[in-house]
Design a protein around this nucleic acid. Structure first.
Ligand SMILES: [Mn+2]
Ligand SMILES: [Mn+2]
Ligand SMILES: [Mn+2]
Ligand SMILES: [Mn+2]
Lengths: 223, 223
DNA sequence: AACATTTGTTAGGCAAGTCTAACTTTTATA
DNA sequence: TATAAAAGTTAGACTTGCCTAACAAATGTT
């Protein structure tokens, strides 16, 4: 049985491994920053997790989840995303409110609970932010998605997920009437600053910054 | 913000205060037993809770919740019972399974969550064990209920709650097809050992022990 | 009232998780 | 390649919640 804290470290390592497809290992400072603790604290915990064979780790070396560690991390992510879906679908939370509460709910220990919850929600495939929900066996649909910033002029695409999940960004999206599934047409790309002119659904043309375009995941084939 | 552990101590004190209507104060040993810790540990925590003005407490004296402490304890009980209701009504948990998971869920911090949950459940008044669910303002319907062991021969009554909520007892009740609302007629009381002959719904007469009759709450006026 | 039993407290210690400050190793740069 | 910067580790300390063993107070019994 893992502690609440140990679970958070495993989940952090999993999330960091998603960031660079190519190199799934993480650094101590990176981890500590992600968890809001000091690097010294992260080192302490890594030694404990290594002892439990949840991470592969050597002094000054790369940090990687073991198979067992990854499996447990995925189980936590599964709970997180199912709870987010519950809050959003059933309790009318907005998509910028779900994360904070799911951070707590993801630590509830009960296999029956998570499986029943999934059934109650109708076996959803994606959470409110468009992220895939792992199945009970650990399978997680690999979603093909690119950033809005990579779309060529004239192309139409559909929003599938958000990269940044901060409240400011999510509320900005809401103001723009952008949600998962919204179609966007790229009208013009401005090389000068990476901003672009886009058409959201049937709205009038509007300019968005490079930072914006680099935080919205889209797909070119409607899902 | 209270810790998970502090919350459990407050809830324990509230529960103990319900046990003897007349004297709502608790003892250190009693508390420790209820929480599965040693008396020395309870003393330590009482000093901390006193510091936070959640309990009135003097060395070797009686232990009582302050108004603030009681208010917080009721909020936790409210969450516990709402979650039990959710598990029972929406996720198909049986009434002996809900408690363990609700023990964890009751510590989730989010006022919005608990209020939305209550609304989602249709503002239930009682949990699956027949216990009243406190309202957001702390109001808790005082339920008039007596023990089956107090019912006179020939009288009919209705099950309103269980005193013992252990798995063995709840599963025995299920086997007897007794649930909240089931009518019971007391056919005969045996003075020798306190057992009684009862009729459950329209079933045949059956004998139950004194221990049984002292753990089932009933009312004489159908609810 | 004296003694015995029950109840409650104190002292000292331990594990988990965190920190700061000092140190070491690795990596980047001149 | 020598040095500077960044990344990572260690040592020692603190807090919370728990324990055991010894002690003190309150209560019950003759
Ligand atoms: Mn989230
Ligand atoms: Mn999410
Ligand atoms: Mn319960
Ligand atoms: Mn209950």
């Amino acid at each position: 049985m893992l502690s609440y804290t140990e679970e958070n470290y495993l989940k952090a390592l999993l999330k960091l491994s998603f960031q660079n497809e190519a190199k799934p290992e993480a650094g101590t400072n990176e981890m500590a920053a992600h968890l809001g603790v000091k690097p010294a604290t992260a080192t302490d915990m890594l030694k404990k997790l290594k002892e439990k064979e949840l991470v592969n780790y050597k002094k000054y070396g790369k940090i990687l989840l073991t198979d067992s560690g990854k499996q447990q991390a995925i189980a936590i992510l599964r709970k997180h995303r199912l709870w987010e879906t519950f809050l959003y679908e059933k309790l009318d939370f907005s998509w910028d409110e779900v994360h904070e509460v799911a951070e707590q709910l993801e630590h509830i220990q009960s296999n029956k609970l998570v499986d029943k919850l999934e059934e109650f929600l109708g076996f959803p495939e994606f959470d409110p932010h468009g992220d895939p929900i792992p199945k009970a066996n650990g399978d997680m649909p690999k979603v093909e998605k690119i950033l809005l910033s990579e779309v060529k002029e004239g192309e139409v695409c559909w929003v599938v997920a958000v990269k940044d999940t901060s409240t400011v960004f999510l509320q900005y999206l809401e103001k723009l009437e952008i949600t998962i599934g919204t179609p966007i047409k790229v009208l013009e790309r401005i090389d000068f600053d990476g901003s672009m002119s886009i058409q959201i659904s049937d709205q009038e043309a509007r300019n968005v910054s490079m930072k914006f375009a680099e935080n919205l995941f889209i797909t070119l084939h409607q899902r």
